[in-house]
């Protein structure tokens, strides 16, 4: 099996307006690899939601994307406050985002549900007070 292609991004926690740089970049990278527009759409939206979450809640983090022959894996890692109730966080409409974020059009409580919606597999590892790692997978076959 050939080695996966690896893309690494630092997500800046202070700059809300530049959030999405990693997803826009990965979109271009995946297009260059000749993947279908639907796959690209799913990966880049899932990643954007993750990026936005890291900016809103965790002061930034890192995003790693690995492209294997059979699937794409996205790993988002932050050192934020963690998620105390994952079931609640996964509910559409539940959000702890502050009002300033809502006025930008975010904080609809759709971030994590969208990440699940657009990926074939999603795993959340979180420790309150230490951080969160989310691993998502989009199948290519």
């Amino acid at each position: 099996m050939s080695e996966p292609l690896i893309f690494h991004f630092d997500v800046d926690g202070d700059n809300f307006t530049s959030a999405g740089q990693a997803s826009v970049t990965i979109k271009k990278d995946l297009r260059r690899l000749g993947l279908s527009s639907e796959i690209i759409r799913r990966v880049s939206i899932a990643m954007y939601e993750g990026e936005i979450n890291m900016v809103i809640h965790a002061g930034g983090g890192v995003a790693d994307v690995r492209v294997f022959e059979e699937y794409i894996e996205i790993v988002l890692t932050d050192r934020g406050p963690g998620i105390s109730n994952i079931d609640q966080a996964m509910q559409e409409g539940f959000s702890t985002a502050p009002d300033a974020i809502r006025s930008l059009g975010f904080g609809a409580g759709m971030g994590l549900p969208n990440m699940k919606r657009y990926t074939d597999d999603m795993k959340i590892e979180t420790v309150v007070g230490e951080g969160t790692t989310i691993t998502m997978r989009v199948n290519l076959t």
Binding site: S23, V24, K27, R41, S44, L104
Partner: peptide, 15 residues
Amino acid sequence: IMSNINVLAVASLAD
């Protein structure tokens, strides 16, 4: 009716 920078990112990503 939203008109901030994030609208452009969403438009691009949602295609």
